[in-house]
Design a protein around this nucleic acid. Structure first.
Lengths: 211, 211
DNA sequence: CCGGTTACAGTGCAGCTGCATTGTAAAGGT
DNA sequence: ACCTTTACAATGCAGCTGCACTGTAACCGG
């Protein structure tokens, strides 16, 4: 019947405006008017697609989470059918990537997490999906250990959980500018080494893992 | 000459009002009027002690960081002269404590970190002091390993860094309500075990480290 | 007792906020 | 050709914001 437009495209554009604004001046700069300006549209359009500001920010967060997850899945797909260790590294690296897009997402994610600290409905968006990811990672850990000649330790699930915790913390550090992506990657490498091959002492003296 | 009051006491009261408000409704609820109300004083007083809202929040963050550090130091002092492993655990547990006060600080810290993501002057307040803490922790790790009959691995500094990263990530999870303090502690225990005694396989089957 | 300094309390204001409302142009079905 | 539905654009508004400003009461050295 009526005029038909691509809703998805509009929402995406608006959400990207939110990300951009938040990246530049913090989530507090995300207002109806500024989002409209950044997206090059009118306030009316923003209101047309989102009933409230909260809904906009929520959707922006949801899409940010999806985008990060997509980054990980892309990494898996790109790695293809290599050894599990390479795959594992590829997954984890996705969160400490120096790519600008990744940085934008992490920054917004952190800002949103700040809000989520006292907004349960937002916190839920940041919650781990269904720990499929952890289970998948645990599988990789298990295989990677076997490939290195180690025996299974039965703690893969916990180890995977910790792996992601470390990675997330490093991502936060990067977002805050406390660590360079390189330094984070180096530290992450050390941890992976430790997890995969606990017995081996220090091997690569780790050029610099400093800040 | 003039009327004399305890400046420190006033500022502390105001900052605690900021923490309380932020805990309840998020950092966005922290406004001049609400802070004044919460502290039971007038807006004029808030303005008298802080030239701007930014300054207030900054001071609140600075004091929150100090308070958390104090928590760690208290833990060290309380542990007294026990074995290094107990000391190490005491330090790390400070960040995943179920104490309400700790929760308030972590929540506010997370909210502030959200702002710090795009405010470098705030990010600096959250930056690691001078990695004295990491070095201290590395020392504990080293001693604890020796006590367990292990040989030094030369990676204690990196390991300590990772320890705190894990702990921080768990603290964030708790603040977001994604993990209970108990679950976090259990996972942290697993990691400590792993770090101190890499060779040993799984020992305590870890009742539940689930969410 | 008094001048001066400090420590507030109260008020006013310009600017911005989200949101409701109204107006209107475009498109498709009939 | 018309009518209905959609997709906006533009404007209005009440509420809140930080902050500047003014008033004033307490205190203390002299």
């Amino acid at each position: 019947m009526p005029r038909i437009v691509d809703h998805e495209e509009r929402r995406k554009r608006l959400v990207e405006a939110v990300w951009a604004l938040s990246f530049r001046g913090g989530i507090e700069q995300v207002t109806l008017r500024k989002v409209a300006d950044e997206a090059g549209v009118s306030m009316g359009q923003v209101q047309h697609y989102y009933p409230s500001m909260q809904a906009l920010v929520r959707d922006a967060l949801e899409r940010a989470v999806q985008a990060v997850n997509a980054t990980i899945e892309d990494a898996v797909r790109a790695a293809g059918a290599t050894d599990p260790e390479t795959l594992l590294r590829a997954c984890l690296y996705a969160l400490v990537s120096p790519a600008e897009e990744s940085l934008r997402l992490m920054r917004f994610g952190l800002a949103a997490a700040g809000r989520a600290a006292s907004d349960p409905t937002m916190a839920r968006l940041l919650a781990p999906g269904d720990d499929d990811l952890i289970t998948f990672t645990a599988g990789l850990l298990s295989e990677a250990r076997r490939e290195r000649g180690g025996e299974p330790r039965g703690t893969e699930h916990l180890d995977a959980d910790i792996c992601w915790s470390v990675t997330l913390a490093l991502g936060v550090d990067i977002a805050l500018g406390h660590r360079s992506p390189d330094a984070a990657k180096a530290l992450l490498d050390h941890h992976i080494e430790q997890v995969l091959d606990p017995e081996r002492p220090a091997q690569h003296a780790a050029a610099d893992c400093g800040k």
